[in-house]
């Protein structure tokens, strides 16, 4: 059943998005060619096209994910989605996995667009293709312990990103329940705002309540800057009362060393799990189509 749901999610995605992707591809291509040709004035102006295409890829995909979740479940098409004998959890999981996959695809396409644009710039500067890109990669590779940083930041980004999509889905599903129905599209928006405020409060509470912190020491960054290279800050996990640490930092700010309560990192996965559960429950028992 899950794979069947995925199949139809991707079929709908293909039907609604591929044509738009082709338009973006054309814009990118025309822009890159114009840049590479080094025509007076035109080439400078044309640079806007690849930039637009690179930005449009993730943004349009994100909008599509949000809009199609709403329309397929709470617009007229919801009458189909909610009468098919699909368990609510399966339907939800299918939509979530499809959305994440589509967003990953758009991220990959965005990277490809960046590479293409950099090649166009290389050609325009009469350099070897990929030379600009190689230079950027060389700088990144020179940063000490960069692998771990990329992995850590990537994981954090991924978690907060999934949590974000989950909370948007939650806001749409909950905001479409009968009690918010009078507000129309305002229902989901209001629920999202309320959820956002609640999440922020939870983040602060968790940050201060958990006796674990992440000490961020900026000294290596400053030292490296003086030598004209790049380095990442030094991290260390510390224990202690985060509330007092917070007060100390307020009273005697240290420009180089700061401590962040580790609890704050729990907020996103926690709200994500709760929201996902509530969303499935909403789809299962509280759908009220207009």
């Amino acid at each position: 059943m899950f794979s069947l749901v995925l199949k139809y999610e991707f079929a709908a995605w293909r039907r609604s998005y591929v044509r738009f992707l082709m338009v973006i591809g054309m814009v990118l291509l025309v822009g890159c060619i114009a840049v590479a040709l080094r025509l007076p004035i035109v080439s400078d102006l044309a640079m806007i096209l690849p930039v637009l295409a690179i930005l449009a890829l993730p943004v349009s995909q994100f909008v599509l994910v949000v809009v199609s979740y709403y329309r397929s479940l709470y617009g007229p098409r919801g009458y189909l989605a909610h009468t098919l004998p699909i368990p609510a959890g399966t339907l939800y999981a299918g939509k979530l996995v499809a959305a994440m996959t589509e967003l990953v695809i758009s991220a990959v396409l965005m990277l490809a667009a960046i590479v293409l644009t950099s090649v166009a710039l290389d050609v325009a500067a009469r350099n070897m293709p990929f030379s600009g890109l190689r230079q950027v990669l060389r700088i990144i590779a020179s940063i000490p312990a960069i692998g771990r940083w990329i992995a850590g930041l990537g994981l954090m980004f991924l978690i907060s990103f999934v949590a974000n999509i989950v909370s948007i889905f939650f806001a749409i599903s909950t905001g479409s329940e009968a009690r918010w129905q009078g507000l129309g599209i305002g229902g989901p928006v209001l629920v999202y705002v309320l959820l956002y405020v609640a999440t922020q409060l939870l983040t602060i509470v968790l940050m201060l309540a958990l006796p674990l912190g992440l000490q961020i020491d900026m000294t290596p960054v400053v030292l490296a800057e003086a030598r004209g290279v790049i380095a990442m800050p030094q991290l260390q996990i510390v224990t202690g009362n985060m509330l007092t640490a917070f007060w100390d930092a307020l009273r005697e700010p240290n420009p180089l060393v700061s401590t962040v309560g580790l609890g704050s990192f729990l907020s996103a996965p926690l709200t994500g799990v709760v929201c996902a559960w509530l969303t499935v429950r909403s789809i299962r028992w509280r759908t009220s189509l207009r």
């Binding site: 009458y79 009468t83 609510a88 509280r286």
Partner: peptide, 23 residues
């Protein structure tokens, strides 16, 4: 049909509350 859950009283299809099994 199970697309409107916000009601009071009883609604049963084949002896069940409208939901996955009845759909």
């Amino acid at each position: 049909a199970g697309v409107l859950a916000d009601y009071s009283g009883t609604a049963e299809v084949l002896g069940l509350r409208p939901g996955l099994e009845t759909k």
